[in-house]
Design a protein around this nucleic acid. Structure first.
Lengths: 212, 212
DNA sequence: ACACTTCTTGAACGAGATGTCAAAAAGTTG
DNA sequence: CAACTTTTTGACATCTCGTTCAAGAAGTGT
């Protein structure tokens, strides 16, 4: 007996990815189904049959974004020096702000637009933030064990600081004509993490291990 | 000859203030004229006669918010210890996130929602950010002169860092059940500014002025 | 080839959005 | 009081939104 019908004419992954890019750029409310139809080539009827409604499709896209963030978060704690990689991550926010202005981070955008009303989106945003935070924390922990990061650093607190700084960069960079101006703020946040505080004009500083 | 007509039945300041609160909470697009009518008691016709259109009223409200931010920015560099006041400012973001969830900072919200498309709003947001940044910078400068902040601190870079951190707090706090969890991130950012680095488990540290 | 199932298509709907307008209302000035 | 000006009022035009639906198209399995 025939149990299968006409197959989908579009690829699920492609549609979710395309929806992700549109929602990322325009946000949830400002993205209309006409936009999705125009940019994805899928008519509203098919979208509703496949995903339910606009909000459900948005959640699919946000989930994919959060997964990508999770993946990126695990890469921070890889082998080798950690601080340059964290610095690169934060600088990439500024480069992205210049290369593709007005996009920011979809987790932060969603937090600003839909939280705390939207509980399902809230769960996804929380998950993405938590993944970034724990990724940063374990990276700092490893760097502390290897001596790259000073022993008196609270890695958990600094992981939260770096996550918050990253979200702030996404916001502030939108208002900057040249987002690279924020690079020294990144360095100001990272400098205290390194063991060797370079000496200022007051001359070389005694090492912490000196008894006197 | 009669040159004046019927006077306004509403107070301009009150309407702009009310619009500010609604736009602040809901954003530009999600606020409808029906909302404004319902919460301000002013019908769309009067609003259009008085302000032009919804966007113009939004700009009036945003301008007022930016003015308030400017005023707050000048208060940071007042007499007395600066760092506790900066800490209090950042902590107040977390308290506001708990007391009135889903509001954030209207400058950051506008940056996320309308920039870089809206150039007029962009000018206001840039102005507000710049005021906060210069307020923080001059406060850190004064604290550095008074010895409260270490001499090898780049005050301009740290002012940018603190502004960015503040905006990040507004975003991340939306996703936190208990925003106070972010307080240690604030302390992690502020600790390196103070002159006296409290000693870790490795014992007391030599003062920078020691010759040996 | 046929029966059956699922998907696509495009129009249509109700709701709600912004913005407009003519008439009535309410002041002010001589 | 009367002339004049401006504001208020509430209905209305127009548009776009998310969503639904019936009919036709396109597959699959026996």
């Amino acid at each position: 007996m025939p149990r299968t019908g006409r197959p989908r004419s579009f690829d699920d992954d492609q549609v979710v990815q395309g929806a992700l890019e549109i929602f990322w750029r325009r946000g949830f409310a400002a993205t209309s189904l006409r936009d999705l139809k125009h940019e994805l080539g899928v008519l509203p009827g098919s979208l509703y049959a496949a995903y339910g409604d606009k909000h459900a499709l948005f959640l699919r896209a946000l989930e994919r974004y959060a997964d990508a963030a999770r993946e990126q978060a695990t890469e921070i704690a890889a082998e080798g020096p950690v601080l340059p990689r964290v610095r690169e991550l934060l600088l990439s926010v500024l480069e992205a702000a210049q290369a593709t202005p007005g996009r920011g981070c979809m987790l932060g955008n969603t937090a600003a637009e839909l939280l705390p009303e939207d509980h399902v989106a809230g769960r996804l945003v929380r998950g993405g933030f938590a993944a970034l935070e724990t990724g940063l924390e374990s990276a700092l922990d490893a760097a502390q064990r290897s001596g790259e990061v000073g022993p008196d650093i609270d890695c958990a607190a600094h992981a939260r600081l770096l996550l918050t700084l990253m979200q702030g960069l996404h916001v502030v960079a939108r208002a900057e004509a040249d987002p690279r101006r924020l690079a020294d703020a990144i360095d100001a946040a990272l400098a205290p993490l390194a063991v060797q505080h370079e000496s200022g004009p007051s001359g070389p500083r005694a090492t912490p291990s000196a008894l006197i």
